[in-house]
Nucleic acid binder design. Structure first.
Lengths: 313, 313
DNA sequence: ATGATTATATGAATTTCATGCATTTTCGGG
DNA sequence: CCCGAAAATGCATGAAATTCATATAATCAT
């Protein structure tokens, strides 16, 4: 079985470096007899002569030379490992696996992540969008560490923090008859082509909070992966989309887009970051939440929206 | 100070592999409490949580995952190291550092080494030709393991084995007046250009055993490193050289060379392999000596030479 | 639910092992 | 040949690893 230990390599290295047990003992805070016993034990366990008595000091045999080169190769890796572990222990290092349950939030997340990576150079950020058992399940199963979601499902062991509010608006192109409407009612979408992200309609607020309550569906639905393409389509009058107002504004300089309020009062949305309570003490995670929630970052207020939505249980 | 040991990595790897302390304990010949105590101690020493209780078994934290990848990287190197050391212990592996005190022997050595390397695939052979304190000194100082020499200096701690005999002859080119002589006497070299290896003349038998006893020197001496060039020169009549008879015969198909006996009786030489007595039990070294001494390898008998030389002391 | 089952955790007892001390042996130099 | 410096040896001891017995926790089937 394995008998060669890191401490053995340290002894080999140090004895070779100092050329004597007495001197090596000093550096290792051991006595000469301790080392003498140790090296003999190593040799017996390994079944190889490692040292040769050369006069009144020790020299390495061939096997010893080989072990020394091994030690020089492996020991630095152990040291590196320990300094890394210290970083883990201090909460300076880790992987922040962010789960997304909110398609348009991706644009927002990018703005948060960039400066965050500067602040935490040793933290790796990973973004995931598909979860077998939903975002909450992914949090519980440790698949992710943070969940970006509009649906904070309050459960024991989880904590949610609101990070920004926005208004969900209908985005139409310049040729669209609704482009200057003060607001739109569900019936006005009955003849429209609705462009959405490719997720089930029960996860799309435009359905759950606007169309379905009125018992109305669009004439056609097109699913498109990326926000850019989606907005190109909208700008060219190939359909309408429901997106955060700030997102429409963000793209305003590239495409001619017109946001229209959904319903008289508009649809207010709020995004939450969820995390496990057990991760409370992880510095870089706590900082991510605080940083993401800090005002002036997303900067898309909802001053003109009167009510807030957000299921809880 | 360094606390992370190989055994810790083994535990991390095995627990991760089996997913349970009990199962890992079986494989490691440890009880479950032993592991339970061990992993807690590791965590305390490193100051990092490595495992997370997941239901009734254990899962790795991020730091744990990182340690596992470290273990997967480092542990195989330890295992490789141990199997190598076992080979060292069995005398299957090592470095055979051969010292040469005999220039023309290089050709012979090549013929010995090739098949030897086949027989001992894990033994590295290294050939050295320069020694600060002579070949014997190099043996004593462990600079080399085997010394190829015509001068076996018997000293306590060293053993010499004769490996082959040869006759030192004068080699001349096709145009040379001596080409068909039955033998040559020192006086006949007085007007010649003698080509030798670049070593002091006290280490050249043509001087010590032939020219100097007669108080004669050659008209000119040229020093050349390589045997090939030396023989090209001889074949073109640019000088004569003193070389083993078998070497001249070896080159006969490439250059037109004529060997001439040195003196009426010829100069007989014997090559010895010297080694330290302490290396007696090294298999691959003992085999090298036996192999090199086996008849039919060098195959250059000295049937026609009547006396043997070789100082001893 | 509840008990059976299968984990890990805990604490005290025990064994094992590393280390230090005292001493001897070995080696090199005057 | 003896002295100084270093390694080797043998024994005693204390710390650390391991085990045993048992408690606690979580899953599963009924």
């Amino acid at each position: 079985m394995g008998v060669l230990e890191r401490s053995h390599l340290i002894i080999i290295q140090e004895v070779a470096r100092e050329g004597s047990l007495t001197a090596a003992g000093m550096r290792l805070n051991l006595t000469q007899p301790a080392l003498s016993h140790a090296i003999r034990k190593i040799e017996n366990q390994l079944g190889v002569k490692i040292w040769r008595r050369e006069g009144r000091s020790l020299a390495l045999t061939q096997a010893g030379e080989w072990l020394l080169s091994l030690a020089n190769r492996l020991l630095p890796q152990f040291e590196l490992a320990e300094s890394r572990l210290e970083q883990f222990g201090n909460g300076e290092r880790g992987a922040l696996r962010i789960g997304m349950e909110c398609h348009p939030c991706y644009q927002w997340l990018l703005k948060v992540v960039s400066p965050y990576l500067e602040r935490w150079p040793k933290v790796d950020v990973d973004v995931r969008q598909k979860f077998q058992f939903g975002g909450i399940g992914a949090l519980f199963s440790n698949e992710i560490d943070v969940l970006v979601t509009p649906d904070p499902l309050y459960k024991p062991g989880l904590k949610f923090t609101p990070v920004f509010d926005y208004e969900l608006v209908l985005v139409v192109g310049p040729e669209h008859p609704l482009r200057d409407a003060r607001f739109v009612v569900p019936e006005q979408l009955a003849g429209e082509t609705l462009i959405t992200y490719p997720v089930p309609s029960e996860r799309l607020d435009i359905y759950t909070q606007f169309l379905q309550p009125a018992g109305i569906g669009p004439r056609q639905q097109k699913q498109i992966e990326t926000t850019d393409i989606m907005l190109v389509m909208v700008a060219h009058g190939r359909g309408v989309a429901a997106l955060p107002r700030w997102l429409a504004e963000e793209y305003a300089d590239r495409f001619e887009l017109y946001p229209v309020k959904l319903g008289r009062k508009g649809i207010a949305k709020q995004i939450f970051l969820g995390r496990r309570e057990t991760d409370e003490e992880i510095h870089y995670l706590r900082d991510f939440i605080a940083f993401a929630a800090s005002p002036g970052l997303a900067g898309q207020g909802v001053a003109d929206v009167e009510s807030r939505a957000g299921r809880s249980g």
